[in-house]
Design a protein around this nucleic acid. Structure first.
Lengths: 157, 157
DNA sequence: TATTGTTATACTCTATAACTATA
DNA sequence: TATAGTTATAGAGTATAACAATA
């Protein structure tokens, strides 16, 4: 077993009093670990993971992203985008299209099959959010979303 | 270069309109990427990373944690804790002590040198938080902290 | 000369199972 | 029989450099 299953988690509560438990970066990291574990579990039946789902979701959106934009937005290296797009393209979920206005750049577009799978993946991702944020009500989730959006895309350094 | 340096990030703003940009799990993941990059940069002069800092910080706290508790609290596998404690112990920053009440269990305690380094690391971690959360004011950070604490330690699944 | 995508490589992180010693 | 720690190994994720095509 990796990490701790929920049935075994009952002994470390006394560490909640530690300084680290109030460290924002630590809290974000812990929530991400739990959240991505939940999301990967929900996406597994669709043969997707959080990273491939992110690429698929953006590719199926309205302004079709270039690989360069995907790398910037997902905070990944361009070379990692290549591998992710390769995987999705091999399954017929997205396709590359050279940008007519800049032949260096390749746009990534969702296929019909990709959009269909993406719709199902969104449902799975939403269920995973419920799994990992059970402690928060709808209003609190909205407040958290607004704060995170500003923090995640705001000026860094 | 890995990922994107801040000077080059200006082209993917149009993807902010995507569905994914409102996905809570995605926002948490992106903020964590940025936050841990900032924290690792600040901790590098002390030869620490976010994970080793987390262990050191807990070991230097008041209720000395067992390795089992560290694994549960940090959401890591027990086998990963072994490697992290090995590294810190080899540098004389923490030491293992068999729990008298259960000789299977080993408590991890910070040494004098470890506590001194930990104090400096806390300053670095705080500076990293400023780096990555520049977009939020003090009140917003407090609100975010409270929401994250409940979400990160609340019931999961 | 700079940028987009690509390939290749190495390194870190994470997952999993088996083993030991204690309980 | 169960639990805490350890070891070993494999796979996923990440970092870095070099190259071709295009600007």
């Amino acid at each position: 077993m990796a990490r701790n299953d929920s049935t075994a988690a009952q002994g470390a509560d006394r560490l909640l009093a530690s300084d680290l438990a109030q460290d924002l970066s630590f809290l974000v990291a812990r929530l991400r670990s739990r959240g991505s574990a939940a999301a990967n579990a929900r996406l597994a039946p669709l043969d997707l993971k959080v990273r491939s789902y992110s690429v698929l979701s953006l590719a199926c959106g309205d302004p079709s992203p270039s690989q360069r934009e995907l790398a910037e937005f997902l905070w990944l290296d361009p070379s990692q985008i290549v591998a992710l797009v390769d995987g999705l393209e091999g399954r017929g979920l997205v396709r590359r299209e050279t940008d007519p206005s800049d032949r260096r750049s390749k746009l990534v577009l969702g296929t019909a099959r990709g959009r269909e799978l993406c719709a199902r993946a969104r449902v799975a991702a939403s269920a995973a959010e419920d799994d990992s944020l059970r402690a928060l009500g709808a209003g609190e989730r909205a407040a958290l979303r607004a704060l995170l959006a500003r923090a995640a895309f705001g000026p860094a350094d």
